[in-house]
């Protein structure tokens, strides 16, 4: 990788982190309300995997979707405005944090029903095959969704019909408050594709370079052989399930330990310093720029108008 490309990946991760931190701030100030699920800690997953996106591919995820849309290149201000329920938001303020979309970049949500995106993402893969457009679908879901029955209905159809679907299981350890150990028999998440003959590739979710390498391998297989692959990613979410979750189901020290030892941005920052000889100062500048960018996004969001009342009855029926 050239230095500029390597730095760009760092910038993307930092921007998602700073976006989420700004969102948390706006939430506590009351500008954002309801459910707001932050991606902090998991940034490397989307930044790494998005390196494989082409303009024909499609993407879908759960309600923890801010980072995914940012990684697709959507301006933070449109995402922040949506979180604040403003008319300038990417869903005109009607969707909110959980329902971000971008048709131009083939991003189909933002689905608030745990596991629903897996069947829908399988349909996106079906459409790529039907249209023979060379695209593949990227379907992100968590360890919680992995216990929904429709996930296996989807795996069955994807394997049966050889659909170009990459399933990304982001195991962030907690399905809201229930740990993977308490919800999932004998840590079986890595074997869930086996009965369907779907290959599972595992990756450390806190190591950007490993994700890039493993997701490239997975993506190539899906694209070249038109068949599903599961990418099982071991990651960790720093914040609560949503902003309203006090996190009583884990200790503060557990979170701190991961932050100190496995943080994806720190890890990758070290690589940049060691392998690319970049100074701490350069990285700090990127941090500062990201903070400023999110400050501008927040101002744009706060200054924007709420949708007009007549918008209530639009976009319902065609």
């Amino acid at each position: 990788m050239r230095t500029e490309e390597a730095l760009d990946l760092y910038r993307k991760m930092v921007e998602i982190r700073m976006f989420e931190e700004k969102a948390a701030e706006l939430y506590t100030q009351g500008h954002i309300f309801g459910f707001c699920h932050l991606y902090t800690g998991q940034e490397a997953v989307i930044v790494g995997i998005s390196q494989n996106f082409t303009s024909t591919d499609s993407v879908i995820t759960s309600y923890r979707d801010h980072g995914h849309l940012l990684a697709l290149g959507v301006e933070p201000r449109y995402v922040m405005a949506e979180l604040c329920g403003k008319i300038t938001g990417c869903s005109k303020g009607k969707g909110g944090s959980m329902h971000l979309y971008n048709r131009l970049r083939n991003f189909y949500g933002g689905n608030g029903i745990v596991g629903a995106q897996v069947s829908i993402g399988t349909g996106l893969a079906f459409a790529h095959k039907y249209k023979s457009d060379g695209g593949i679908s990227f379907t992100f879901f968590g360890d919680g969704a992995a216990n929904q029955g429709q996930v296996y209905e989807s795996f069955n159809m994807a394997a049966l019909w050889k659909l170009p679907a990459l399933y990304i299981l982001e195991n962030n350890r907690y399905a809201l408050a229930t740990s993977a150990e308490r919800s999932t028999v004998r840590n079986s998440l890595k074997k869930r594709g086996d009965p369907f003959g779907i290959r599972t590739i595992c990756s450390d979710g806190m190591n950007l370079l490993e994700i890039i390498q493993k997701s490239r391998e997975a993506t190539n297989q899906v694209r070249e052989r038109s068949e599903p692959v599961i990418l099982n990613i071991d990651t960790y979410r720093y914040k609560g399930h949503s902003m309203s979750d006090p996190g009583t189901y884990r200790t503060r020290s557990e979170v701190e330990t991961v932050r100190k030892s496995r943080d994806p941005i720190d890890n990758y920052g070290n690589v940049l310093q060691k392998d690319y000889g970049l100074s701490m100062k350069i990285l700090e500048t990127i941090n500062d720029d990201a903070v400023e960018k999110m400050e501008i996004a927040a101002k744009f969001a706060i200054d924007s108008q709420f949708p007009k009342e007549e918008n209530l009855r639009s976009d319902i029926l065609i």
């Binding site: 189909y108 399988t122 459409a127 790529h128 429709q150």
Partner: peptide, 11 residues
């Protein structure tokens, strides 16, 4: 769900 996904992308 598969059908709904396919419809979103233009089928």
């Amino acid at each position: 769900g598969l059908g709904v996904g396919a419809s979103m992308s233009g089928l």
